[in-house]
């Protein structure tokens, strides 16, 4: 299943600006469109993982098209613009907010990407997530609890990670995670974990 990010806004400045910010976080396709006519049809919505940044006035239409599919809408709002009704539950990026908010949204999307997009020896998003927690010193039980999965599943993931990387020890995995920028060395006490 492919994953795609769409920026839907009438203003070219907003489209291009947002797309260029997203491109530092997301290495795959970013589609920029100005109206609903260019929006993927319902069939495609069902097949793809879509993250749509959409201006408030077009959001209702996106939600209708997106019903029951894997489309997630994020509102593009301007200052002082009230959000009402169904749109209340959606996440927003404000034209004046900084990139960290955007980063959080894109990171979540990347995290939930289906695993089949990874190559044979690349770690899947789920495995990276687990590796990150292992490297930060969490126990299998803590990892299972925080990701709402069973300990057994955590152990299976860890076996797969070790199989793919050829690294078994926790401190070895920590080094790998830092070298590959999965965690920031500032997040952990190096002396303790390595």
């Amino acid at each position: 299943m492919t994953s795609r990010i769409i920026v839907l806004h009438q203003s070219e400045i907003v489209r291009k600006g947002l797309a260029s910010m997203i491109s530092t976080l997301w290495k795959k396709e970013i589609v920029q469109i100005s109206d609903m006519n260019q929006f993927p049809d319902r069939d495609l919505c069902m097949k793809c993982n879509l993250l749509v940044f959409v201006e408030t006035s077009l959001a209702e239409e996106v939600l209708i098209l997106a019903e029951d599919s894997k489309v997630e809408a994020v509102l593009i709002t301007a200052n002082n613009q009230p959000v009402t009704g169904d749109l209340d539950s959606l996440r927003c990026v404000n034209l004046y907010s900084d990139i960290s908010l955007l980063k959080g949204i894109v990171d979540d999307f990347i995290k939930n990407e289906p695993e089949s997009t990874a190559g044979e020896n690349d770690l899947t998003q789920r495995e990276k997530e687990i590796l990150r927690l292992v490297a930060m010193g969490y126990s299998n039980k803590e990892i299972a609890d925080s990701l709402f999965i069973s300990i057994h599943t955590v152990i299976t993931h860890r076996k797969n990670i070790t199989g793919k990387l050829g690294i078994k020890s926790i401190s070895g995995l920590t080094v790998y995670a830092i070298i590959n920028r999965l965690i920031d060395p500032g997040q952990i006490d190096l002396e303790k974990f390595i």
Binding site: K168, S169, G172, Y176, I179
Partner: peptide, 19 residues
């Protein structure tokens, strides 16, 4: 096993992952 494990890890980190 623990000591052997780390030796293997060290080898793989340098050979496969270190820039």
């Amino acid at each position: 096993s623990d000591v052997d494990e780390k030796m293997t890890d060290l080898k793989n980190l340098v050979i496969k992952f270190l820039k």
